[in-house]
Structures are given as structure tokens and as C-alpha cells.
Amino acid sequence: GDGLKLGLGTEATPEQVKGWNIDVRPDGKDAPVGQGDAMEGEEVYLEQCAHCHGEFAEGAGRYPVLMGGEGSLAGPNPVKTPGSYWPHASTLYDYIYRAMPFGNAQSLTPDQTYALTAFILWVNNVVEDDFVVSNETIGSIEMPNADGFIEDPRPDAQPEVVCMKDCDVPTEIVGRAAQIDVTPEDGGGVAVD
């Protein structure tokens, strides 16, 4: 700060910050005191999560799959789950507490959230069934795809020259959206203009 303040806003009390400071970072920073393991987590999961994400976290309907997918990322059908894709365990805690169960956010206790994290890690073979996820351990869990991320090298895919005339490009039609036929029926149609 440079000392030139507008004098607006009110100091946040520690209690106020505590109520809203719900994030948890990869290194475990700000993780609230608490703990839970996969078996405790399974109990909560079956009650509050399974009807959307499936009993084994395999997903249901179009709801997200939360397990599996290992080794699929470079293949023709990548399946991105916490086990196969997510680089940090903290993200499970951070996201589940703030957003799940869908439609009843911020309703879980820290213990429940740690236990659910443990459960999802367990079904993904990241931790053993007796591993206790807690504010102490959450910052040091090794995730399978921790090394799976690279820096953004864009802009990429740039042409060598910006061709304006008689450019050598393929102009054969190799795909047609009308044949795929997944466009909503009321697609706007044509109107006056």
C-alpha cells in the first residue's frame, strides 16, 4: 500500500473473514481444522451425492463422473476425473465445500468435507481406505496427474504468411452439421432481416 487511502470500506473482523474465507489451497493454506477418511466419506456420499454421481462415483445421467479415467488422457476418449486429471487434492475440498451438494452449498461440516475428499481419492486409488484427510494432510497428497500440466504457449497455430490470393488450402467439404443433426429444433430460423 502507498498510504493514499480513499477511506472507504470497513475493516473486516476476524470473525467475518472466518465465515467467508472458505477456500483451501494446494499447500493446505486456510484448510479448516477437521478430518475424515474414505469410510466416513462413503456414508455421507451415499446419502448426499450418489444419486447424481452414482454409487461408485461413476456418474449418473449427464452428471460428472468422479472416478476412473487413468491413462485415458492421450487416447481417443479422454476421461477427466479427480483421479485421472486433477493436479491437487485441495481442489476437491475447496470445490465440494463451496458448491456441493449441488443446490445446498456450504452445508457440509469440515469433517464431512474431508471425509468426502478421502472417499473420492480412495475410489480413484489415490489413497488407502484408512488414510485420514485433514487440514494437516491435505497439502501433501500426491495426485497421479500432478505433472500433467504445462504452460500456455499461445499464440500458436499461426500461419507462416497471411495468404490473400490463390491460397493452397483444402476446400472439400468433409463434414456437415445438418447431417449430424444435434441442433435444437427452434434454431431461430429466418426472420424479417
Binding site: 488422457l73 486433477w86 491437487h88 475447496d94 500433467g148 504445462i150
Partner: peptide, 21 residues
Amino acid sequence: WFAREETSKYTDLMPNGKARL
């Protein structure tokens, strides 16, 4: 923070299985 929306989502998976962050 590596929030869900910048890891699980909004990362770009390349053909070699690595993802742009």
C-alpha cells in the same frame, strides 16, 4: 489456488495427454 474451474475445467488437453494450464 488451482480451483476446480482452473484445473478440472478451463484447461486445454493436448494430444499427448498433457494439459495447458
